[in-house]
Design a binder for these strands. Structure first.
Lengths: 220, 220
DNA sequence: GTCTATAGTCGGATAGAC
DNA sequence: GTCTATCCGACTATAGAC
């Protein structure tokens, strides 16, 4: 295939090609031949650089964590700081939460790369391997914490209560669904693909639900 | 392996074994040898009954649609009739929606079989094949319609508007997440598995979010 | 560090006995 | 309808040249 540009070194090209092929076909279904072909590299380079197919898989998990951290990290840090500040008003938390949701949709639904790593991550959710530890510790855990610090006070729930955790995951699902049920959503909306305008519609719908949930926790 | 009871005929045993193995390893990753072994059947029975591996895969999609229809069908039909009845009050719609959500959680999160077919369905969402058409036409489409008829009037949105569709899918995501992000949720809650008591907690958290969304659409 | 060649295994499908 | 035997292609990993 040799689709990927051969500028970066073979090691990096292999990781990016592996992300694509592992995502599409799973661990067993992905062949080292297909990955090497996609990367424009030799098959023998995989045992050479990563010790084997498993090592390459784990390297892909680290690469995904890097990508998501680079994209969402700044926003999550800002949200965390704001949430920790005692001077922050409920209205500011409210706005910060909506901004976080907008950014999450942009990354998760709006980028082509997300189509690649989402499959990888979902697979790990169903059948966790060592790669799940990497993703949870570096991406999911920190993301949850930032959201919980923002949303807990708005919902009037204890920071470490199970009910807060479950309500937050449920809220996260409101955004995840646009990636995880993409095919069904596109078919129902009679869309062929998500466009920037349609992403705005998605953000607006998500905002409407979030505002309802956040406002219900507010004293009148 | 020969785990599956050999009472049913080989054809049926193959479908049930294939659901498990396709779910775990994907289409390419699943070997006909593993499926036949799990079913306690001969490898040659797969080309014989289904024409080949692809035919077996499609038969699994039909089997999943049967299972879900059997589980959710009665509730969806009842909800649809209630939603169509002009005498139905908003409060009745409200309650019917919560009941539907409870049932959905029971089936999606509370059953062991859902662990099998959820992987299959999610895979089809990311990379739809002919099997997706079966699942959409027989399961996803009818489910959406019933929910939309209940929820549209409560949210005060036009039945066929894009914003209603997107808000409904977002709401559906609130429940889906408990299956699709199961590993992350279990880790954050420090649970080892979902139990009946924990399913009640999940239903309560989902209800809280749903009530907030439905009440926001109500005139004070 | 990258290549070719090849070893050893496992894949799906078929033929034909029973 | 179910089995064994077998074909042939695809798989991962290694050895060793360059």
């Amino acid at each position: 295939m040799q689709v990927v540009a051969e500028k970066a070194d073979a090691r990096q090209r292999l990781i990016e090609a592996a992300l694509k092929v592992f995502g599409e076909h799973g661990f067993k279904g992905a062949s080292t031949r297909a990955i090497a072909g996609e990367a424009g590299a030799n098959i023998a380079a995989i045992p050479y650089y990563f010790g084997g197919k498993e090592g390459l898989y784990l390297a892909v998990a680290g690469y995904i964590a890097d990508q998501i951290t680079g994209s969402m990290g700044p926003g999550l840090n800002a949200a965390g700081k704001l949430a920790d500040d005692p001077a922050t008003t409920p209205e500011q938390r409210h706005q910060a939460m909506l901004a976080l949701a907008d950014g999450f949709i942009s990354m998760l639904v709006g980028t082509e790369e997300a189509a690649l790593w989402a499959r990888f991550v979902v697979r790990e959710q169903f059948d966790p391997t060592e790669a799940f530890d990497v993703l949870y510790d570096r991406v999911m855990g920190p993301s949850y914490v930032a959201i919980a610090k923002l949303l807990g006070p708005l919902l009037g729930l204890q920071p470490d209560s199970d009910v807060l955790k479950l309500r937050i995951f449920s809220v996260i699902g409101q955004a995840l669904v646009f990636r995880v049920a993409r095919a069904a959503i596109l078919r129902r909306l009679e869309w062929d693909a998500y466009t920037p305008e349609r992403l705005d519609q998605i953000r607006a719908a998500l905002r409407a639900n979030l505002i309802a949930i956040m406002d219900a926790g507010r004293p009148a």
